[in-house]
Design a protein around this nucleic acid. Sequence first.
DNA 1: TATTGTTATACTCTATAACTATA
DNA 2: TATAGTTATAGAGTATAACAATA
Lengths: 165, 165
Amino acid sequence: MADRAQYEELMRQLSAVGCVRRELGRILPDGCSSGSATVLTLLARDGEMRIGRLAELLAVDMSVTSRHVTHLAALGWIDRSPDPADGRSRILRLTPEGRARLAELSERTAQLLAQRPNDWSDEDVRRLTWLMARLRASFHDPRSDPRAGPPEDGARSPRTSAVTT
Amino acid sequence: MADRAQYEELMRQLSAVGCVRRELGRILPDGCSSGSATVLTLLARDGEMRIGRLAELLAVDMSVTSRHVTHLAALGWIDRSPDPADGRSRILRLTPEGRARLAELSERTAQLLAQRPNDWSDEDVRRLTWLMARLRASFHDPRSDPRAGPPEDGARSPRTSAVTT
DNA sequence: TATTGTTATACTCTATAACTATA
DNA sequence: TATAGTTATAGAGTATAACAATA
């Protein structure tokens, strides 16, 4: 286990990287907050799902997720259809409109990233992504034991399912 | 440069690690928010400084920093004395009370961390810290060119001064 | 005129708790 | 009784803009 000073430094960076997230949030189109953008991305990547699953992937309370989803549904970017298997749930899906918006978003983000950290290698990006996922798993999942080494090649994530986000 | 999907994954993790920061924030004593804690830590580590410098280290607007500082000064945990060299500025310092509180904080945090990611090696913690700092530098500092390799040993940071946070 | 801070305002994200509907 | 989701409320964090004081 690392020493206290190292952990304090880690926590400080954890707060400070927020400025990157905020900067990325600034280029979003009207009506699309950072939270909304993440929801769109997850629905595009993992396909239709329920609120609870989405909340897991977002690492956020279900009530928060519910608000994001309501917002996106009001915009017509996602669709909430009843879950035939469970009357309490609804299935979330991107609408064609939502897909179009997401494509715009992705384009803008790619442009911004192309300007900035363009000297990052695949390996660096993968490693940072993996380490953040693993850190999250350490906190989210008490029984976590990510002995699986860092991603030497494939963009593998820690084994905990909630982290395969 | 990595491809778009990798960057999107990076951004998603960037949002999701927020849950770690929030969990750490939950163990803070009354009156001490997450932002306050970071201010205390920075003043302890880097010694007395002005608001502007503190805002840089926090990677946050000066107005935000001003509010945190006002809060901590009201609690008596830090002290704002006039800057003899510049009448517009004030010098921020931890008070003995502030130091005591910080020590408590550090203790609690260490306990929490000892429960959770206790399987992290020094190397892992250092690497993650360094990569986050570098990511921030890529955005904060347009002319950044962090060719300096990752930290093979010492907890070195990217060369940009604003990142030696 | 430019810079350092401060304050007012508004917006986003978040959690907790109370509530509804279904399992 | 337990679970999925919603809503109301409250609090933290943040940025922008207008302002004051000093350089």
